[in-house]
């Protein structure tokens, strides 16, 4: 084959391959939306993080404003310490609330950030004091059954009673 046609084909091939990579990175992956933005880190303690993973989204009013950084365990307080990497375009009051939520019934867990009313804004290295840990499904069901059981003491006709005992 002529050298020039060969070069042309190889050029096309490499271009198509790179285009596929860029397509994967931008359109399929999340490189386009966030990764390169400047972030600042704040910390939050949770009594239970449930199934929260590093790189899970941090959302405020449903908009992704950051990602979960590292997750560590504080051996003195026996609590989870979660580092949040927030987009430096967005500032939040120091009394904002961080809550671990689940998207859908079985979806992945994320941190919902609820803005407070303070004048001072969070800075890098700041700390979120108001947190709400993950709701663990087993606990929830346990609580539900426990309450039912309490009800059962007043109303002996409930069919649940027999099942629980």
């Amino acid at each position: 084959m002529e050298r020039t046609t060969l070069d042309l084909w190889v050029g096309l091939f490499v271009a198509a391959g790179l285009a596929a990579l860029i397509f994967l990175a931008l359109k399929v992956g999340n490189l386009g939306d966030f990764n390169n933005a400047e972030t600042y880190a704040v910390e939050a303690h949770f009594d239970n993080i449930g199934g929260l993973k590093p790189r899970a989204p941090v959302k405020s009013a449903g908009v992704v404003v950051g990602r979960v950084g590292t997750i560590t365990f504080d051996p003195e307080l026996f609590e989870a310490v979660v580092q949040l990497d927030l987009d430096s375009r967005y500032k939040f009051p120091t009394d904002s609330t961080a809550a671990i939520m689940t998207s859908g019934l079985l979806g992945e867990q994320y941190i919902a950030l609820d803005a407070g009313g303070e004048e001072t804004m969070l800075k890098a290295g700041g700390h979120l004091d108001l947190t709400q840990g993950a709701v663990v499904l087993e606990q929830l069901i346990g609580q539900f059954l426990f309450n039912k059981n309490d009800d059962g003491k007043t109303d002996a006709a409930t069919p649940l009673k027999g099942e629980i005992k």
Binding site: L24, G29, G32, V64
Partner: peptide
């Protein structure tokens, strides 16, 4: 279809490791 995909597929974790 696309937005869920973008939210779930991570460049570093998934695409780069595939490469």
């Amino acid at each position: 279809f696309w937005s869920q995909m973008q939210a779930a597929v991570d460049f570093g974790d998934d695409i780069l490791q595939g490469v």
